[in-house]
Amino acid sequence: MRHQKKTVKLGRTAEHRKALLANQVCSLIEHQRIKTTLAKAKAVRPLAEKMVTLGKNGSLHARRTALAVLRQKGAVKKLFEDIAPRSSARNGGYTRIVKLGARRSDAAPVAFIEWVDAPLVVEEPVAEEKGKKRKAGKGDAENKSDRKSKKSEATKSESEEK
């Protein structure tokens, strides 16, 4: 029976799993949002939220505890200076998981995990960043992409009318 055995093992040894989760939390701190399998996202969430709790504590001891888990100084710094303070009004539930359906190659369920208190800029920004990349890549094709977006908006409104 699996009573009271809460650890999500992810098919890895303890050290492998700890390293994986630490890396994922560091990536989440760095990029505000990461795309991973649903199982990993669910495994990352408790650790990520514990790290935010440490960050809200803010003491030197908390900082060292976080460093012992995450093993990346830059990530701990950002956690304590950016991420924890902006979640100060929230008691837990610092992360959000958005399911994205199954991956094409192996049908694994994929999800985003992101900070709930990430600035709105970060939520729309993914769209902006991609738009910039598109513009940078195509160069002269800026107008075309604009037209396309207008078209897609038009089709959206049509479908809404239906």
Binding site: K99, L100, E123, A127, K130, R134
Partner: peptide
């Protein structure tokens, strides 16, 4: 599928979650 971001428009719970086909 329920509880999943829309793969064709990228909306979930009335909010743009991801950009599709960029």
């Amino acid at each position: 599928a329920s509880h999943t971001a829309c793969p064709s428009c990228g909306y979930y719970k009335g909010r743009q979650v991801l950009t599709v086909g960029a």
